[in-house]
Design a protein around this nucleic acid. Structure first.
Lengths: 350, 350
DNA sequence: TCGTCGTTTTGAATCGGTTCAACACTACCG
DNA sequence: CGGTAGTGTTGAACCGATTCAAAACGACGA
């Protein structure tokens, strides 16, 4: 059985005396607090002999500097907070990787949190970061409501929007053109001769979902078709493989003459669930059902049926966001927009 | 071309007046600082009329409480820090998901960082967390050196080791038996008739890698074979698809009579790279080369050749770690050990 | 009108660091 | 021998919140 586990216990009370403070260290070393502080921050201002005594006291007392006090007085902290929509989506972890790579150079530390597309959680994390005085935040917003992000910027903490264009010129943003992405996918499916296309999409509160839908509809309109008739939008319960499974099952239940011959999935995780379900149901891809995903994650090319997908420059999205976070004083904010790219594979070509 | 981007700039200096403090708010609302603090923390102690005035002042001044000062005085913070080996490995993000799910119930906030298997980075993040007074830390250590984690525990911040058994009884840990996992994989390959097996492994500084190797060697020894002859360990340059590609190429360069007929990969990302490379080279899986992975990530079952993999109870690993982080005072620490499970698919069965 | 009791509000003390002007000490020069 | 410069060290003030004893206030009964 999965999850079978053995567990051994031990008995011992947790240690919990008060943490040593800088005053304790000073006392133990027989110096003033200012000297201890200097040992910590500008060691070369202190005579080696004194420094050694202080360091010995630090080790002896197991002293760890209290970051809150330090920061309260000194003001600065070299960390950056990131909030992404979904920590289990490779798209966002790859972007986080890009951010980290870039910030590492300046020895910033990076803290990441996932909002799970929940505005409240997004707000909570941002507030936590701000209250603790991070140098900057990078956010991929869950909804259109980004007043709280703009507010952070107004209060003087730099902020960059990730995977969404900024509605105001003062805040930098890094995004990929999702309208173009949706259009690319659907134009491709039309070119392959499909006339009834399902779009397994997430909720329209998420801008990416809305834009990709808009792009899809534009592709149809441009080709002279009626989007209402040719495109069936199905909202999946979650942007995950299980969500994809639920969505494709809904499509399969339709009467044969209304059933789509192609599915466009709002991301590759959803597409993965679709492929899994189609295989279980014995439906051939792409013969009976074409599939297109979004994000072109690592494994897309290696699937049973290699997945056609819209590729985004993920890591670069992150590095660019990090670059925009700290600009020379007075440098103008930028709105960067990347172009997506369709990677055609077997899952959509007859 | 990928990465083509347009960028628009705007010009406006970033706003940067001093942030409003609680004293400013008190002044603006015509009350004492204590009252403002009460509005923030125990609103029902304050008359509605007063509260409204204070809230108006807060909104007016765009006031955000300074978390450092708050914490310095009050001592407590409801957040937890996590450091994992690799943020781009689904294994760890799934575990993080488990942690988050559990901690959310008690409205803790979670900060995650990736050490990229680097001890220094691990230390830096842990120190940052500790200095800022998180309530607890969950770490999957990069190396055997975990003195710094034990030290954190001794200083009174609860700590749980993730994906590694604790060497001391005072610290809780949650792990999966990697020796058993390595053994399962290799026993399976032997049962399939393979006599020359390559193990694409990571560096032995990582315990998981060492243990899986030990398990693999034990499987061979138990079957009466000479591990040195039947098992070829290849150290990959990175625990990623690209690392897997490099590793398998090394194996393929061997003379035909020494070339392995099966590969066991230390994780599924590595296996993905192996499958990709074998396909490009036109080598049939499993006929010419059997492949076994580790972790059983979401996409393992949906690959061109469904991947045999060792499954770990990932999410549960996380929830359990979170459970162990905060126990009733005096509750004994626990060492939880889960058993892995081999999921056999086509990539290893003739 | 006065005393009592319960509710609100006040503001000084406090948390643990960093900062910096002032001080101590030594070395060197005229 | 006095003056000056340079190096190390000191310790009080400060950052911005929370806490809590004390003060202020209001309602009510005697």
């Amino acid at each position: 059985m999965e999850g079978m586990a053995t567990s051994t216990k031990a008995s011992s009370p947790p240690p919990s005396r008060r943490r040593a403070s800088i005053t304790d260290v000073a006392k133990a070393a027989g110096v003033a607090v200012g000297t201890v502080s200097n040992v910590l921050n500008k060691p070369d201002r202190v005579l080696p002999a004194t420094r050694e005594r202080v360091e010995a006291a630090i080790a002896e007392l197991n002293f760890v500097r209290n970051g809150s006090a330090r920061q309260l007085r000194a003001g600065t902290l070299t960390s950056v907070g990131v909030v992404v929509l979904d920590l289990s989506n490779p798209f966002f972890t790859d972007a986080a990787r890009g951010i980290q790579d870039r910030l590492e150079r300046d020895s910033f530390t990076l803290m990441v949190a996932g909002s799970d597309e929940d505005l409240d959680r997004e707000r909570r994390y941002l507030r936590l970061y701000e209250e603790h005085g991070v140098q900057g935040v990078i956010v991929s917003p869950a909804t259109d409501d980004i007043d709280h992000v703009l507010a952070i910027h107004e209060r003087g903490t730099s902020a960059v929007l990730l995977d969404r264009p900024s509605p105001v010129p003062e805040v930098s943003s890094v995004a990929v053109d999702d309208v173009a992405g949706g259009r690319l996918a659907v134009e491709h499916l039309l070119a392959q001769g499909h006339e009834r296309i399902a779009f397994l999409n997430g909720p329209h509160t998420i801008r990416q979902c809305r834009d990709r839908m808009a792009g899809a509809a534009m592709a149809l309109a441009d080709s002279g078709r009626d989007p209402g008739a040719a495109l069936l939008e199905i909202t999946v319960p979650a942007l995950s493989p299980d969500g994809g499974e639920a969505g494709i099952r809904e499509a399969l239940e339709l009467a044969p003459d209304r059933r789509p011959t192609a599915v466009f999935c709002v991301n590759d995780l959803v597409a993965l669930g679709v492929l899994r379900t189609l295989r279980r149901e014995g439906i051939q891809v792409p013969e009976e059902m074409a599939v297109v995903g979004y994000d072109d994650v690592t494994f897309a090319a290696e699937l049973a049926t290699p997945l056609t997908s819209v590729r985004q420059p993920t890591v670069e999205l992150g590095t660019r966001a990090a670059d925009l976070l700290f600009r020379p004083e007075g440098a103008a904010p930028e709105q960067v927009m990347f172009e997506p790219q369709l990677v055609v594979r077997e899952s959509s070509t007859r």
